[in-house]
Amino acid sequence: MVLVAEYTGPQGGVWRLLCCPNVPLPKGMSRLEIRRELTDPTAPSSFRSQQLRARDMLRGDLEAEELEQYVEESVLFTTLEKAANWARSNSLFPLTFGLACCGIEFMHTIASRVDIARFGYEAARASPRQADLIILSGRVSIKMAPVVRRLYDQMLEPKWAISMGACCSSQGVFNNYAIVPADKFMPVDVHVPGCPPRPEALVHGILKLRKMIQADPDAGWRTRYDAHGTEEILEDALATTPAAVNIFGPDDTGGA
């Protein structure tokens, strides 16, 4: 790089006209580069100058001390747990599970306008084995409650649950013999009110959940709910048949 010209800009930055002599170019042409550099090298670096340094680093223009300083500035220290929680909270896989009216608004949340993919929650899974998050979107009837509980049990830890809408939080407008609030049969992390809640409200609930996951390094719901000792699989059953987890006997339909 050969310095061709230099002048001071209106905001105090120095504009340097640089020329690259080694690159073969057609006759009569020259490769020019305009680079803005700070007048005061000790001044706090602006975003633009950070960008320029990052570009230089990627090009391999930084060397020795400069490179070492760059690396020192760029390294961020964290714990593995925090990093894992950060990653987890930004890629929740919801279960494709619609119960009633709220299920339609849940579909709207995934669809074009609200586009939950912006937060990384768009990969809706049809199997509970692959899902991290169950959104109870609608009314849970007495007949459906054991099924929902079984779906929740089939999900792998760490797992979260959002109760969407009034029906599965407080029985809503119905409040009769047929509806069960979700808290009666499974742990719920976030309740989203509404009948049905707007898609924006559901996104708000999911973002609250994200905050919760990031703040709480202990992700297991048993710890969160102080529910250790409520495991359904007994130790001696595990000792005889290690594959006994989630396997039901011939007459046991799991309530379904």
């Binding site: 609608g138 009837s141 459906m144 119905f174 009769n176 013999y177 047929a178 509806i179």
Partner: peptide
């Protein structure tokens, strides 16, 4: 019957104009 909500029965317990939201 997995989303049976008892709407018809609930309607019997509400005034005519309050049945509409149910």
């Amino acid at each position: 019957g997995y989303v049976h909500t008892g709407i018809e029965k609930t309607a019997e317990d509400k005034a005519y104009w309050k049945v509409i939201p149910v």
